[in-house]
Amino acid sequence: MEIKIPLDIKKVKQLKAGDEVLLSGVIYTARDQAHKRLSAVIDAGKKLPFDLNGQVIYYCGPTKTPKGKIIGSCGPTTSRRMDEFSEKLLAKGLMGMIGKGGRSPDVRNAIKKYSSVYFLAYAGCGALLSKYVKKAELVSYKDLGPEAILRLEVKDFPLIVGIDSNGRSIYD
């Protein structure tokens, strides 16, 4: 199934845990330290470095970009470490998350509550996944190095629905 970003709520609701999808459009990388900062920005009531509404966050910290390439190796990191921050971002309009592995019951409930979706990317396949990234640029938090927020344009990025908008998980 092909899916485009910004995500359409109707389409998100049709997705079922286990569905294989090809995602195209803009996604934003953010992992541990970026989540900590985004969460602090929300707590302080300040402006986020990008509008989360309808967006998708990819738990990814790529390698350096080799010469002549768009991006380096860029597979997913373990999602569970982002669990404590996810509901806060979903409440701000975040509609999708991409990572690897399971999520906490709290995140699952939040996904259901906000009719969002959690995707799994092919874990440990960073070289292969770099082929689906058509553009990469820095958005914020450059000092975090590989944990900086990047804006990625992806085409037919292969994913599996991990948790659907009804809170059903592929790992059930």
């Binding site: 910290g61 390698t63 390439k69 380096g72 190796s73 396949c125 960073g126 070289a127 292969l128």
Partner: peptide, 12 residues
């Protein structure tokens, strides 16, 4: 792909 194009097998 990693071996041929000399891209890290995993980003980590």
């Amino acid at each position: 792909v990693a071996n041929k194009e000399r891209i890290a097998i995993c980003q980590d």
